[in-house]
């Protein structure tokens, strides 16, 4: 199970990466493992304004569907359209090619409440 050090993590198993003035969001290796083979990803529309904690995407596997929450408030500026054809990228490359969407935060900060890799690892392993 991978827990890259350069990312921040939420309790709902999203990872967040700061990329200049936007943050990229995806699901963690632990999350994809729990879900099993992903068959479909429902992404938010570019331009949507979201609040932290909003359910803005859905990841479906054969037997479950999980909501994905916005870790920060802001505007959705880009989504990973490749996932439409290749939802399996969430399984094969959760931290890279399987990124889901990018948000431009409405205010700086907001990421402090998220966990670092070590804290998330402990959290995930205790689940």
């Amino acid at each position: 199970m991978d827990y890259p050090d350069n990312l921040k993590y939420s309790k709902s198993h999203e990872w967040v990466r700061q990329d200049g003035d936007t943050v990229a969001v995806g699901i963690t290796d632990y999350a994809q493992d729990q879900l099993g083979d992903v068959v479909f990803v429902e992404l938010p529309s570019v331009g949507t304004t979201v609040s932290a904690g909003d359910s803005i995407a859905v990841v479906e596997s054969v037997k479950t569907a999980s909501d994905i929450y916005a870790p920060v408030a802001g505007e959705v500026v880009e989504v990973n359209v490749t996932l439409g054809d290749k939802p399996e990228l969430l399984n094969s490359s959760p931290f890279k090619e399987g990124w889901m969407f990018k948000i431009r935060p409405s205010q700086s900060g907001g990421l402090e409440t998220l966990m670092n890799a070590a804290a998330y690892r402990q959290f995930a392993e205790s689940q």
């Binding site: 479906e60 054969v62 037997k63 479950t64 569907a65």
Partner: peptide, 12 residues
């Protein structure tokens, strides 16, 4: 596509 249905998706 059973993830659309009530016995999986419940309230959603």
């Amino acid at each position: 596509l059973q993830a659309r249905e009530q016995y999986i998706r419940r309230g959603k």
